[in-house]
Computed example of a mutant assay.
Amino acid sequence: MNDHAMRTVVVTQRFFDDETIAYLKSHRCEVRLAELPPGEADGELTEDALVQMLADADGWIVGHARVTRALLSKLPRLQVIARRGVGHERVDTAAVADLGKVGAIAVGGNDACVADHALALMLAVSHRLRESQMQMNAGSWTILTGADLYRKTVGIVGLGRIGRGVVQRLQGFEARILAVTGTPDEAWSRKMGVAHVDLDELLASSDVVSLHAPLTPATRMLIDAEALARMKPTAILVNTARGGLVDDAALLDALKAGRIAGAGLDVFLSESDPSCTSVTNELIALPNVIATPHSGASTREGLLRTNRIAAQCVVAVLEGGAPPPACVIADGRHRAGST
């Protein structure tokens, strides 16, 4: 391609800001924003609809659409797929590499807002904010007794960027922090007062269990009926990571039976498995559940950051370079004979 030719970048996410559009245009990119049906995200688009949108695209900034081998094989012009986010279980990274394309994620863009969201859920559930407002709406000002986060034991499952952000925020609550993680950073853990334990001990000892692990075959359904049974009856579960980490049906049973005190949930199994929708609906109807629609990363500031990082990754590839190493999830250009 002529170095001075315009490149087409298609964005299939909502909330894409003017400043990032201007950045792309300043790098000779024509920007096309997908027209999504009201209330729908790109994860609901069919393969045929995506092919039509992306047929002449050089770059694609994607949200939750499934990036499959079948789809990519129909898009020979497409060079780079950048997620406005960090989870990439819906991207077939092997296919991206095999077909000579680049896949990227927006590392560092939403760490702060998701960590904030996790703390918000901890506090809202502990202080029974939803239950209190429901009672007030019904005309009762009866005071419900909540629980402190101050000096409680919080178990963090996964100490990546977001998990570490949660640990930092908990310092102000003088919390005792337990953690389960793959490869502990002992120096950082000592500095932050984090004790590394196994999952059984974390579940049995924690007043709050907060999930920040990636979804992998090893972590799928990590929190199942047996895990929930190990938790204190006064404990709460917070999940701002991925729905597949938790057996939602088992969580529903535990909450209804009073085996744990409450849950703060930003993610659900039904996001990837529609057969679980009825379980999700029952969960979010419970008074001791605070639920949000996978919106932890959707602050104004967080979206601006992730938009810009995704756009920078696209520009880097289209200009013959590479995104920051931490952002690259697949790079198959060498297989296509590129430099």
Rank of each mutant, 00 (worst) to 15 (best):
H4W: 00
H4G: 01
A5P: 07
T12Y: 00
D17H: 10
D18Q: 15
D18K: 12
T20K: 11
I21L: 12
L24H: 01
C29S: 06
V31H: 09
L36Q: 04
P37Y: 03
P37M: 06
E40G: 02
A41N: 15
G43I: 09
E47Y: 00
L50A: 01
V51T: 14
A57S: 06
G59I: 01
G59P: 01
H64W: 12
A65D: 08
L72D: 14
S73N: 12
R77D: 02
R77F: 02
Q79V: 08
V80L: 08
V80N: 08
R83L: 08
G85K: 03
V91S: 00
D92M: 10
T93R: 12
A94P: 04
L99K: 09
G100A: 05
K101C: 11
K101Y: 05
V102T: 05
A106W: 01
V107I: 10
D111K: 07
C113A: 14
A118V: 01
A118H: 02
A120V: 03
L121Q: 08
L121M: 11
M122R: 04
A124H: 00
S126A: 15
H127M: 10
L129G: 00
S132N: 05
M134N: 14
T142E: 15
T145L: 12
T145W: 03
T145N: 04
G146Y: 11
A147W: 11
D148L: 09
D148R: 11
T153F: 11
V154P: 13
V154W: 10
V154S: 13
V157K: 05
R164K: 14
V166I: 15
V166S: 02
R169S: 09
Q171V: 10
G172Q: 07
F173I: 09
A175D: 02
A179D: 09
T181S: 15
G182F: 02
T183W: 03
T183Q: 14
T183D: 06
H196Q: 11
H196D: 03
V197Y: 11
V197F: 06
D198K: 05
S205R: 15
S206F: 09
V208D: 09
S210W: 10
L215Q: 00
L215D: 01
R220E: 14
R220P: 04
I223N: 10
I223Q: 10
D224C: 03
E226T: 12
E226K: 15
A229T: 11
R230M: 11
I236Q: 14
V238A: 00
V238C: 04
N239T: 05
A241P: 01
A241Q: 09
R242Y: 01
G243F: 02
G244T: 08
L245C: 01
L245H: 04
V246N: 07
D247G: 12
L255I: 11
K256I: 12
K256H: 01
A257D: 05
G258F: 04
R259A: 15
A261H: 12
G264P: 06
L265S: 09
D266N: 07
S275R: 13
S278A: 15
T280Q: 15
E282A: 15
I284V: 15
P287F: 04
V289M: 09
I290G: 00
P293N: 09
G296R: 10
G296T: 13
A297L: 02
A297E: 00
L303Y: 05
L304W: 00
A311Q: 03
V317A: 06
G320D: 11
G321K: 09
P324Q: 14
P325F: 08
C327W: 00
A330G: 07
G332S: 07
R333A: 06
H334M: 12
